[in-house]
Every structure is written in structure tokens, then in C-alpha cells.
Amino acid sequence: MFHNARVPLLVLLLALASQPAWAQRDLTGMWRPLARNEDGSGLDGDYAGLPLNPAGRMRAQSWAPENFDVPEWVCRPHAFDFSVEAGAATMRLSAIVDDPTQKLIALHGRLSMREQETTIYMDGRPRPPDYVRHSWSGFSAGEWEGTTLVVTATHLKEDYIRRWGPMRSDDATVRIRFKRFSPEYLRATVIIYDPVYMAEPYIRTSLIWLHDPDVLMPPYPCEEATETVIERGTVPHYLPGKNLLPAQDPKVVDQFGTPYDARLGGAETMYPEYIKKLGPFPRPTNAAAGGAERGQ
């Protein structure tokens, strides 16, 4: 009797011992985004909460919406960190495993919105030299800090962090901290270190995903549009002081009555203490034209 009871126990112990280490913190599967918290006024052209330095603000203020119709940009995908933060994309994480050893080489990530993919190397390989091509997802390496997967991306292309002008440069380092804090929920924190366009690191814990094996990952075919309203060779942009986006108009008011000064962004607009400074700022009064107020 005693002998028989030990067999299943041994089998269980062996089964546990044969699990790869990463399985204890397995993030793979399909993840459905839950509603995110909105920031700022919601007006197009609002940089509140972004630690832009003067260069980052000027880069943002020169951006015109026609930029998305430039033939070269029609199929530009969202950056992986943008979609992680944006909160509208389905995410799939899958494991790339060395078959003979069953050792985890990397995690492959895919996001549904203006599709983006990334490979997060988990095998400790060195970063490539600075002269290799930069990509939208860059070179990402992951390591565990306790039960948090910390992903560090370098070799990134310049890309937008909001779809109305604010950018991070190709010299930025992006960290994403993934934490699965229950079988169902996954949280991501995005940290951007960009000395070119920012005055401080940008940190945002904005999104929680729900594990959902039934969620769909749609394809995203894209081909260059040759008949956009932007003539090939044109670079649309606003000259300094001529930005037409509603949040950059000092007279336009949003639903919260956010002062114009806050909508210019800057490091201090990230912190709760800034709310106290808003009091003396003049409040704009003109309503924005329809459709100007929306998320992300």
C-alpha cells in the first residue's frame, strides 16, 4: 500500500522537475486588452503627461495629420511599445524553443493594431553593434526580475508615442515590464529613456490584459497607396507657431477645461503636484470642432 502511494508522488515530482524554468512564469498565449485609463484632455495635439524637452515639443508641433498619407508612411506600423501602451490591441506571446534541449530561446510577440511583432531574446545573446539596421521593434532582450519579465529594446527606429506628433528618437531605450499577477491578468509598464526628445524618462503603467484563448488575431495586409492626397515627394508639416491641431490652439477648450499650458507637455505635467499649478492658468473657452476629441 505504502509502495503504491509513492509511485504517483514520484511521477508528480518528476513531472514538475522536467518543466522548463520559464514555465513557472509563462506569459504565452492570447491576451485581450481591457479598457485603459485615458490621459490628458483627449484633444488631438495634447502633450500633457509627456516629458517632452524643447526639441521634443518642436518635433511634435511640426507634425501635420497629412503625415499619415505620405506614401512612405502609409504602411508604417505602430511601434510595439506604442501598441502595448495604447490599449486597443490584441496580443499574442508565443515561445521559440530550441527543440533538442527544450531551452527557451525567445518570446515572440504580435499585436493586432497596425500589426507589430517583436522577438524578445531570452538566451542572453549579446546586443548587436551600433551599425546594424534599426527596426520598428529594435533588438529586445528579456530577463526575469522575480516574477516580472523585464524587456529592454535598443536599435529602434524613430517612431510616434502619440498619433499626433510626439516622437521618441532612434537613440531611445525602451523597457517594458510584463507582470502576470494572476492566471487571468497581465500588466505592462512602458518606460522610455530618450535623451533626444525627452527631459526625463517617460513611465506609463496603463494596461491590463485578460488571458483569453478565444480572442482572434486578425491579419493586417498593407500595400503602399499610390494615390493619396499627398503628392509623392511632399513633406507635410506645420511651421513653428502654425500648428492647427485643437489642443495646440490656446482658445480651444476640452471637456475638462484643461489650460493650454498643460497641453504643451513637459516633465512636470507627469506628476500629481502639477495639478496644483493649474489653478492660476487661464481657461480656454472655445469648443473644439466635432471629432477633435478622441483617445490615443
Binding site: 549579446p126 546586443r127 548587436p128 553593434p129 551600433d130 551599425y131 529592454t152 535598443t154 536599435h155 537613440d171 531605450t173 529613456y193 530618450d194 535623451p195 526625463e200 524618462p201
Partner: peptide, 16 residues
């Protein structure tokens, strides 16, 4: 490489 502010952390990247 240009001098980076202390907060603008970046892992070591090899160069020629």
C-alpha cells in the same frame, strides 16, 4: 557617442 544625461539609461552596445 554624445554625452547622455544620467537618466537616459542605455545598455552597452558594441561599436567598431
Amino acid at each position: 557617442p554624445q554625452a547622455r544625461p544620467a537618466w537616459a539609461w542605455k545598455p552597452a552596445i558594441p561599436t567598431v
